[in-house]
Computed example of a mutant assay.
Amino acid sequence: MSVPSLDQSESAIVARLRAAGCVFAEEEAQMIMSAAGSPAELEDMVERRVVGLPLEHVVGYAEFCGLRIALDAEVFVPRRRTEALVQQAAALAPSRAVVVDLCCGSGALGVALAAALDEVELHAADVDPGAVRCARRNVVPAGGEVYEGDLFEPLPVGLKGRVDVLLSNVPYVPTVEIGLLPAEAREYEARVALDGGVDGLEVLRRVAAEASQWLAPGGVLLFETSERQADQAIAAVTGAGLLARVVTDDELDATVIVASRSDAEAAEAAGAAAAR
């Protein structure tokens, strides 16, 4: 009795994945086979993917902005469209930027931005303990710090008025629409990373309300939203006294809001900084 060849084994895995509805079965099979350390682990990983776990949770990492981001079970999987947010942030960041990644999940956004810039001071925070543990695996090797707590609450007070780039990929799915999400998201990602409240903008409003206290003169707040929520998101941000604009990326199907302090606030903060 001959041992199945690698090609035959891969073909069998591809067939199982395709039967389970995986559109990119060939690529997924290769990723799973590369990540498995033994035949038993391979079988376990294939079975977990077949029953619906996100591929990134199965293999333990996600590809984001050309980086491999470690990913633990239930932690939000960074989406490719969110690369547009990082691209906008990189274009706006000053040299030696102070970067804060709120609602950081795996820490992918902050790590990707740090990789695109030089001499970044990186901080990240999340309310979910599982996300914080995962983020530390990614952010600490990049030279950053990770804090556990609700939005700004766990950040060092010394960051107030110093943040050049505030990345806040807040949850923005309205509560009533959580059940409409793909099963991979609604069943296997932490709800706190998805649920944005009644209209999907509740967490954003809380971020916007405090953002001006943390932003440096010239600093920017960037977050992702859906195209249909963009006008409401702009209203939420301007209602908190910030200036805001929408940036769209058709290739990535992304809608990013870029916000900053008003000219008066920025001038006042610059004067206070000069007086210190």
Score class of each variant (00 low, 15 high):
Gly60Cys: 08
Leu55Ser: 01
Arg96Leu: 04
Val100Trp: 00
Ala29Arg: 05
Ala131Met: 05
Val120Gly: 04
Gly105Met: 03
Val146Ile: 08
Arg96Asp: 14
Ser38Asn: 11
Val127Met: 09
Pro129Gln: 14
Arg80Glu: 15
Gly52Arg: 01
Val127His: 03
Val51Pro: 04
Val98Arg: 02
Ala142Phe: 02
Tyr147His: 15
Gln87Tyr: 07
Glu41Asn: 11
Ala124Ser: 10
Ser95Ala: 15
Pro156Asn: 12
Gly130Ser: 05
Ala115Thr: 01
Ala73Val: 12
Glu27Lys: 11
Gly21Ala: 14
Arg96Ile: 00
Leu102Asn: 00
Glu121Asn: 09
Ala135Pro: 05
Gly110Pro: 05
Leu42Gln: 14
Ser106Gln: 09
Glu83Asp: 12
Leu55Ile: 14
Glu27Cys: 03
Val120Gln: 02
Gly105Val: 09
Pro141Tyr: 08
Phe24Asp: 15
Leu113Ile: 08
Gly107Met: 00
Val59Ile: 15
Ala91Asn: 13
Pro154Ile: 08
Glu47Tyr: 05
Glu121Val: 06
Arg48Glu: 14
Ile32Ser: 00
Ala90Lys: 04
Leu155Thr: 13
Glu119Cys: 09
His123Lys: 09
Phe64Asp: 00
Ser34Cys: 07
Pro78Asp: 09
Asp150Arg: 12
Gly149Asn: 13
Arg137Gly: 08
Gly130Leu: 06
Leu53Met: 07
Gln88Arg: 15
Ala115Leu: 00
Ser38Arg: 09
Gly130Lys: 01
Gly144Phe: 04
Ala29Phe: 07
Leu53Val: 00
Asp150Trp: 06
Asp118Arg: 15
Leu113Val: 04
Leu113Gln: 00
Leu92Pro: 03
Met31Tyr: 08
Asp44Thr: 14
Asn138Ala: 08
Ser38His: 11
Cys22Val: 15
Pro156His: 12
Gly52Asp: 10
Ala116Ile: 04
Val99Gly: 01
Asp150Cys: 06
Glu121Lys: 08
Val23Arg: 12
Pro129Met: 07
Ala70Cys: 11
Cys22Phe: 04
Ser34Glu: 14
Val146Asp: 02
Ala115Pro: 02
Ser106Phe: 10
Phe24Cys: 04
Val50Tyr: 07
Asp101Leu: 07
Val157Glu: 15
Glu148Pro: 06
Glu119Phe: 03
Val98Leu: 11
Val59Met: 01
Val146Gln: 00
Asn138Pro: 03
Ala62Arg: 06
Gly37Cys: 09
Ala114Thr: 14
Glu26Asn: 12
Leu53Gln: 04
Gly149Met: 13
Tyr61Leu: 03
Arg68Cys: 03
Leu117Gln: 01
Ile32Glu: 02
Asp126Gln: 07
His57Ala: 09
Pro129Arg: 13
Leu117Tyr: 00
Ala108Cys: 10
Glu43Asp: 14
Leu113Glu: 07
Arg133Gln: 10
Arg133His: 02
Leu85Trp: 00
Pro39Tyr: 12
Val86Ala: 06
Ala40Arg: 14
Gly52Ile: 10
Asp72Glu: 11
Val23Tyr: 07
Arg80Pro: 11
